[in-house]
């Protein structure tokens, strides 16, 4: 799930459902939504998590016909969605390889423990990505860790997010720019 901001017209969000190999199954995107002045004042710092996570995220999740096992995003604000759904929501960032350390994910897993969690901080390493979860839902790391074997080690979890951003940009060009 990703969102982009359109100049002067607010935000739109997109949710791409893929299978475990990254093949697309369904895509939904919202129309643009822009907070008014009252909302800006009253929500303050919580505006973006409310707008992106609760408003856009929940709408998209309600709309998709195929319910996902996990939602991955590159925007930490979207972690707010986890407070409104039972589906784990993870923020993906690139795993920075450490010098002199094996890059074999299997070896990394064996060394770091059976639950594939990294540093025990509710984070999970899959493929070349580190997944972080909502502070109040750290259990998601363990839940997803048990299903990790379904995702190929070669999977790049951030790559589909790039597709979503491109699809949103294309939608803006084609539809909302009119």
């Amino acid at each position: 799930m990703e969102t982009i901001e359109i100049d002067g017209r607010g935000h739109i969000g997109g949710l791409l459902i893929t299978n475990q190999n990254g093949r697309p199954l369904e895509f939904q995107c919202t129309t643009p939504v822009r907070p008014n002045r009252t909302q800006e004042i009253l929500f303050g710092e919580t505006l973006r998590p409310w707008l992106l996570g609760e408003l856009i995220g929940s709408t998209l999740l309600d709309r998709v016909a195929i319910k996902p096992s996990v939602i991955i995003t590159s925007d930490p604000c979207l972690l707010e969605l986890r407070n409104h759904t039972t589906v784990p929501v993870a923020f993906a960032e690139e795993a920075v390889p450490e010098r002199g350390r094996s890059q074999n994910p299997e070896q990394t897993d064996r060394r770091s423990g059976t639950e594939a969690s990294v540093n025990g901080e509710g984070r999970l390493k899959i493929g070349g990505s580190i997944l972080r979860f909502h502070d109040a839902h750290g259990v998601d790391a363990e839940t997803l860790g048990r299903q990790k074997h379904l995702i190929p080690n070669s999977a790049n979890l951030q790559e589909p997010l790039e597709r979503v951003r491109e699809a949103l940009a294309e939608t803006v060009r084609t539809v909302f720019a009119r």
Partner: peptide, 11 residues
Amino acid sequence: RIPLKCIGLTL
């Protein structure tokens, strides 16, 4: 909750 419209595509 502000009602939002969606555009969908099923592959």
